[in-house]
Write a protein that binds this DNA or RNA. Structure first.
Lengths: 209, 209
DNA sequence: AATATCTGCAACATCAATGTTGCAGATAGA
DNA sequence: TCTATCTGCAACATTGATGTTGCAGATATT
């Protein structure tokens, strides 16, 4: 029923995690999926979900906020305002990739606009993070890492699109069959992906010159 | 009710177009939108939609197939198998951009998998088109337009992502408020966009060297 | 002008998903 | 072991969306 309660028992906490993970898998595949389907994927009964989350909306809201918080952490950890732009961008890319592959659905923002306050908080964190992203880009441009005549907005959108591509399609380019568990990425995989993203962003896919 | 019927009166045909256009706008904004909302956006009553389309599924199916047919035409018109790769890619980019901005929803494939046959046809056309896309990429790679060591799959995904970005965000980078009619793109706009896409794809956003 | 077709409206049937409740059995934590 | 908490199950109420039908008025087509 409620979201705000006193301390939960250990197995209840575990249920919550399980449910959110299952919801992620199922909803990323089909954003209109049923609570029933989510429950089945989580291996719990539908009523249990309703016991832990006030509503479908609330579930999605909580997932969205949690996801954005993780993303924000990942970006902050890269010191976007102080580290050398190139370093910060690479670090942020790697960090975000690690997080993003686990939140394929929650970060797409296609959960039909839900509860007032949760939505507001998610939007705030998102805007904040985008802002930090823009800061790095501006600094990168000032230092000549990014072409000075490039439209910063286009840069950001290309960068985010590349991030999404890299996070979605699995490193091998294998799309992953429905329901199939995504293989956990190793550090090496992440680094390769991040390198690929930065390389593509900065040098493109044409010949060196 | 039915999809297959005899000749329709002129205003009925117009209704169908109007409905599909409205559905595009509304569904691209919210994939879970109601028939009621679509009807309102189209300026017709809900029953009229049901008279012209057997079901919500059918509506989406028909839109999807129509959209992919247009995309296929746009790609074919660029002679992807015979024209010089660079020319073909530019041409295809421009053509697709022109089409894609009008089919923001139908091409995302997030219409919950619908009718057997329609879905199959859409999938066929899509696969076909992707195949042609791959052909150009391979040719471009052979002629040195694209780095020979680049993963063709990654190239394709980056290219498609850039296409989506360019088609979505309006040329000025202005996202467009909900419900706001997208301004029609002029030829100059399209060419600028296509140039930007190709330039970013091949040279990236870093400094020349 | 005559006719066939289209449309809105109002009413209806259906159905699927959401969210609730009570209870009995299982499980964590002391 | 004892107790509070968690869970599944079954049953229920509610709601919102879909799809249907008949009819009367408007519109296209000839």
């Amino acid at each position: 029923m409620s979201t705000t309660g006193r301390k939960l028992r250990a197995d209840a906490e575990r249920s919550i995690r399980t449910i959110m993970e299952a919801a992620e898998r199922v909803l990323s595949e089909n954003p209109g999926a049923t609570m029933e389907q989510i429950a089945e994927a989580a291996g719990v009964s539908r009523t249990t979900i309703h016991r832990r989350f006030a509503s479908r909306e609330a579930l999605i809201d909580i997932m969205t906020v949690a996801a954005w918080k993780e993303i924000a952490e990942a970006v902050d950890a890269a010191r976007p305002a102080t580290a050398p732009p190139q370093v910060a961008m690479y670090q942020a890319t790697a960090n975000v990739l690690r997080v993003k592959s686990g939140w394929r659905f929650a970060l797409t923002g296609q959960g039909p606009l839900s509860g007032e306050q949760a939505r507001a908080e998610a939007a705030r964190i998102e805007a904040d993070t985008i802002g930090k992203c823009d800061v790095v880009i501006r600094r990168a441009q000032q230092e000549g890492v990014i072409r000075p005549d490039a439209d910063p907005l286009w840069v950001r959108r290309v960068y985010l699109a590349l991030l999404t591509e890299a996070a979605h399609g699995a490193y091998s380019g294998h799309a992953g069959a429905p329901g199939e568990a995504a293989p956990a990425e190793t550090d090496a995989d992440i680094d390769e992906l991040a390198t690929r993203v930065m390389d593509t962003l900065l040098r493109g896919l044409g010949p060196g010159s």
